[in-house]
Design a binder for these strands. Sequence first.
DNA 1: TCAGTAAATAGCTTGACAGTTATATAGCCA
DNA 2: TGGCTATATAACTGTCAAGCTATTTACTGA
Lengths: 112, 112
Amino acid sequence: MPLTAIEALAEPHRRQILDLLNARERSVGELVGELPVSQPAVSKHLRVLRDAGLVQARTDAQRRIYTVRAEPLLELDRWLAPYRRHWARRLDALERRLDQIDEHSDDAKETA
Amino acid sequence: MPLTAIEALAEPHRRQILDLLNARERSVGELVGELPVSQPAVSKHLRVLRDAGLVQARTDAQRRIYTVRAEPLLELDRWLAPYRRHWARRLDALERRLDQIDEHSDDAKETA
DNA sequence: TCAGTAAATAGCTTGACAGTTATATAGCCA
DNA sequence: TGGCTATATAACTGTCAAGCTATTTACTGA
């Protein structure tokens, strides 16, 4: 059974792989050069990411070039949505405090 | 070592717990009533979520009331940010197509 | 065709984790 | 105090995932 995006990306090396591919497409060998694990380990991670729909491969001679497929991240983004109000509130509070500081610095200017 | 938010939330029951708590705060017993696992399993999940900073507990007599702490989700949200352009593009494309459809329906109106 | 390169798979080991039952801890109330 | 309720922890088990080395598969070019 393929993993969901969040399950696949719980593994740090897989997040790293996706980040690298999001910068630009890469061959397996290039990815191996960037990660502290063996080639078979990278291939296995790529398999998991592929099964989760997060990457796709294209063949170029004997290389396989991998690119990002971001669609499965939409579900994660949507799951996250109901939590955004929490930090939205926090940001509101922060902004209020910054406004206060602004007011005080105006006071300071006036008294200067 | 405490897990990161994404690692803690790879587990479906923990996502479910967080969703339940995001709707409203609950006691352990109430959570047990909503999940298909034993009370100790729920307590263990709550421990993991607590260690990850995703929930906090308050004592009410012999109950413990758990609430969401969303801050750790910010990191996940930020990680996700560079991928949003992918589906933003898709939405752009969709919008263009909808615009086209609109134009066509205008054509239809005009020729009607 | 054969040697060489690139990537995937096989087979194995190890450690972590989610679940269980049993037990401990803690607060309430008669 | 004693018994009840609520939750946490202990101890154990089975499964699974991530890593490795060795091997296979696939393609290239001399």
